[in-house]
Write a protein that binds this DNA or RNA. Structure first.
Length: 867
RNA sequence: GCCUGGGUGGCGGAACUGGUAGACGCAAGGGACUUAAAAUCCCUCGGAGAUAAUCUCUGUACGAGUUCAAUUCUCGUCCCAGGUACCA
């Protein structure tokens, strides 16, 4: 007998077996219930890291479990292959994004195969292949045709020195990450998808996704950000023109003492024109245009604004109020203009104090009297209306509707709904992406590429460092085309590529028929497999990717291509695997292996020997280099121990700071099971597994073990099926294994052997989704034929889960004072009597009589005596 | 800033709809086996204090509250992570 489990022999053997027998290949089979499990596909960044291992192990366990439960399971894998890192790597390593990407895919595929994941590799896709993005271009054309895609001017980060567009990630404290030039904002014509058309539908269905974690639907709801309010018109003083604002607090309109416009608001320029503030306003707009536009970036800037020199008329008070432009007003939200009520909004309050503007109190909190001169902060709550003409004395909540109606009658307002959600900008001025299939003709304007010309292939030539914006625009043979409508020779192709979120918004449908050539997908295959039953991926995608995917399914639904709207029936958001970052003053971010400890305990860079700074613990990502490659673990312990350990470390939804401490324990456990099975192998050769109720067993040890084994089956099944808490499932099996180690092999009778056989077989079945190679091997040695995958998942006997005794816990004033066991099913009064008669309890109570005795008989039996 | 989570021994974590805090592991210490080592097996292991076995107090980021009973519910504070629309 081999003393130890040898993964280097066992794992390749079974991987070959699965491959030869096409165990994971699936086709549509109407006779079986389908189950589509998908893990978020990886970006091919180089090597897989522990975060991938964790994600894909979780999925693989569920897949193998479902397969044993009799489902026809689709479990595909592919590559989210377009994206910016490929361009950066190509520049840094003087290679081509495609070469870099395909090399990474090959390397990562090998790693995934070594992990023993049960993918149907025949369905593999890579989004950078024309066969894939052709259909995305096709969909773009459909959306264009239906008015779901449109063009407008919008801002990008721009580095004047590099003459290039920068992603938010490439902007570090307002500076270009390559040259440290201050980043500017540049207006470009870009394509947008009208996701806002579906804002309401996306929002209401958040409450109809019972298989999603609440936190994700809450985040999506907040992201969509529906608010009910009013659109109010403020007439511009001296002009026959209005400024329209959106407000959620129409009740405070009498308190609007000034107006703020977004710096990009079209009226800003014309309002300030000819005023003495004109230059100051222009300078301010210029200054703000250099500021970052991301939400987190905006917060870094001090809230400020300038007076435009113009006034408008408050429709309630009919008084003139000054119009400002301010950097905290967003053009994208509402109408790009806000009425400022300093008494009722903290930001407005700060602004008013800063610039000496009027504060007019219109809502008084009950039982208090605010004074505009002395108040130190805005009062944002509800209260009684004051200084509001005929509405004084009203409750402010009731006033909202009443005042909006009043303004509507005056033609100055109406009720409206506003969403925070913005349309999805999909144009990217980058090379490594799917070209947008549109031609710009000087005569015909925007002309869609004829469907027959699809795919518009990405040219092989990659001018990544070309100056002036989109790399593709520098390739004349690509950029200049004949107009398909009028035949003009000098029409221009759109040289932008699509956001990579477009690819990931529909790839799960492509997996249903990955080689289909007549459309995005084969409708028959999608009808069978879709939607995805269980989706698993990092919680960092809670909003963008998951919302875009939901949107895309609505688009396809509207186009009549599918008959469902929600892509993912159940969602498991896995916590992130985190690790500290390390930076060297010279070489920037370092991989873990690039920092070594010196004799005096300092961390230094392996290349320059300078001290390394240890940063915060954040999610693993290639760009921050805080990644751990699983190869070392794989080589030392094999795939199964790596899988077991990554699951045992924490429940899936929890974030995890990566540490390898503890992997020895997983390895030890695997070997404990190995020895346990081999030790019993011959002794139980002729025994059949026991199958009756526990009450049929004559010996107490046999009964106890049988009950424990049944409890374990129940626990593991529920942990996998209901909560995905694999760590506690593994603990439960460990407990059973520990009990089996306590059995005296010499003093074992025939009956016991049948229970041992039952327990061992079930241990292997229960562990097989987690450590499949190992279990296949031992199952075979137990004399079973075929793959363990083909065996049904075990059932437990409901009549064999409980022992005849129950533990009674006795507390006095909530503190544990005594415990005893008694026969199961005792009446409340008997338990109470026993508890009061207990020696320890008597001692504790002395001669004080109990005020109250509470007896709980649920899962626990507990008595609490209140003295 | 805003939205969403999280915080339990030296460490990873457990405790199901409020009911024995620390399951299962790791690390550490002690012991057995061995010529020795590895492997394996057994014991101890939140803190403080008293003891012959045993017992008492205290303890789930911090501060309040609700309750017979709070890691769990409510309010407030601190810290950490994710997202924040061009990282994927």
């Amino acid at each position: 007998m081999e003393e130890r489990y040898q993964p280097e022999l066992v794992e390749p053997k079974w991987q070959a077996y699965w491959k030869e027998n096409h165990v994971f290949k699936v086709t549509e089979d109407p006779s079986k219930e389908k189950y589509y499990l998908l893990e978020m596909f990886p970006y091919p960044s180089g090597k897989i890291h522990i975060g991938h291992v964790r994600n894909y192990t979780i999925g693989d366990v569920v897949v193998r479990y479902k397969r044993m439960k009799g489902f026809n399971v689709l479990h595909p894998m592919g590559w989210d292959a377009f994206g910016m890192p490929a361009e950066n790597a190509a520049i840094d390593n003087n290679t081509h994004p495609a070469a870099w990407t395909y090399d990474n895919i090959s390397a990562m595929r090998v790693q995934l195969k070594k992990m023993g994941f049960s993918y149907d590799w025949d369905r593999e896709i890579a989004t950078c292949r024309p066969e894939y993005y052709k259909w995305e271009q096709w969909l773009f054309l459909k959306m264009l045709e239906k008015g779901m895609a449109y063009r407008k001017e919008s801002y990008v980060n721009w580095c004047e020195k590099c003459q290039t567009v920068l992603a938010n990630e490439q902007v570090e404290q307002d500076k270009c990450w390559r040259c440290s030039q201050t980043v500017q904002q540049k207006k470009l014509w870009q394509w947008f998808f009208k996701i806002t058309d579906y804002a309401q539908d996306l929002l209401v269905h958040c409450d109809q996704l019972p298989g999603w974690p609440d936190k994700v639907t809450v985040m999506q709801k907040n992201w969509i950000g529906r608010s009910v309010g009013s659109e109010l018109k403020f007439k511009i003083d001296g002009r026959n023109e209005d400024i329209v604002v959106f407000t959620t607090r129409p009740d405070t309109v009498f308190g609007a003492t000034f107006m703020c416009l977004a710096p990009e608001h079209p009226l800003v320029e014309s309002l300030s024109k000819g005023n003495k503030q004109q230059d100051e306003v222009a300078a301010f707009v210029q200054k703000v245009s250099r500021q970052e536009r991301s939400a987190e970036g905006l917060e870094k800037y001090e809230k400020e604004g300038v007076f435009t020199g113009a006034y408008c008329i408050n429709p309630a008070t009919e008084q003139k109020i000054p119009v400002y432009t301010a950097n905290f007003v967003l053009m994208e939200y509402g109408t790009g203009a806000i009425m400022s009520v300093p008494a009722g909004d903290q930001r407005d309050f700060d602004f008013a104090r800063k610039y000496g503007l009027d504060i007019r109190i219109v809502v008084q909190p009950e039982g208090e009297t605010l004074d505009a001169n002395t108040m130190s902060e805005a009062y944002t709550g509800a209260g009684i209306m004051v200084n509001s003409g005929e509405f004084n004395g009203l409750d402010s909540k009731a006033a909202m509707d009443i005042m909006t109606d009043w303004l509507e009658q005056k033609g100055r307002g109406k009720k409206t709904i506003s969403y925070r959600l913005r349309d999805w900008g999909i144009s990217r001025q980058r090379y490594w992406g799917a070209p947008i299939p549109v031609i710009h003709c000087p005569d015909c304007g925007v002309v869609p590429v004829p469907e027959a010309d699809l795919p518009i292939r990405l040219p092989e030539e990659a001018n990544l460092l070309a100056k002036g914006g989109s790399p593709l625009s520098t390739l004349a043979y690509f950029a200049t085309v004949t107009c398909p409508e009028c035949g003009r020779q000098d029409a221009k192709r759109d040289t932008d590529t699509m956001d990579t979120f477009v690819e990931s918004s529909w790839y799960y449908l492509r997996y249903c028929s990955p080689r289909y050539d007549d459309g995005m997908f084969d409708p028959k295959a999608v009808r069978y497999w879709a939607p995805v039953d269980q989706y698993i991926g990092g919680v960092e995608h809670a909003v963008l990717h998951l919302l875009y995917s939901r949107y895309f399914m609505r688009v396809l639904h509207t186009l009549g291509m599918i008959d469902f709207k929600e892509p993912f029936t159940r969602l498991l958001t896995q916590g992130m695997v985190c690790k500290e970052t390390m930076t060297c003053p010279e070489h920037g971010y370092l991989f873990p292996e690039e920092a070594v400890k010196t004799a005096d305990g300092n961390l230094v860079c392996t290349r320059c020997n300078q001290d390394v700074a240890v940063g915060r613990v954040i999610k693993m990502s290639k760009s921050k280099k805080n990644v751990v490659d699983p190869n070392e673990l794989l080589e030392k312990y094999g795939a199964d121990v790596t899988r077991l350990f990554s699951l045992f470390a924490a429940p899936p939804e929890r974030d995890l700071e990566w540490s390898e401490d503890g992997v020895e324990g997983s390895n030890r456990f695997v070997n404990r099971v190995w020895r346990l099975v081999l030790e019993w192998l011959e002794k139980i050769e002729d025994s059949k597994p026991f199958a009756g109720p526990a009450s049929d067993l004559s010996s107490e040890p046999a009964k106890a073990l049988y009950i424990k084994a049944n409890q374990t089956i129940q626990k593991v099944t529920e942990d996998i099926d209901k909560s995905f808490h694999f760590n506690t499932a593994i603990s439960a099996v460990m407990e059973l294994v520990n009990e089996m180690y306590a059995i005296d092999a010499e003093a074992t009778d025939t009956e016991m052997k049948t229970v041992i056989r039952f327990s061992l077989e079930n241990i292997l079945l229960l562990l097989s989704p987690i450590i499949p190679h190992f279990c296949e091997e031992l199952f075979e040695r137990l004399g079973k034929t075929g793959s363990i995958l083909e065996h049904p998942w075990p059932d437990y006997r409901k009549d064999s889960l409980k022992t005849d005794e129950v533990l009674v816990v006795v507390q006095i004033n909530g503190k544990l004072r005594s415990k005893f066991t008694m026969g199961v099913g005792a009446k409340e009064a008997v338990i109470k009597e026993m508890a009061l008669a207990d020696e320890k309890i008597k001692k504790h109570m002395g001669d004080k009589p109990p005020k109250k005795v509470i007896v709980i008989i649920k899962k626990q039996t507990l008595v609490n005596i209140v003295v």
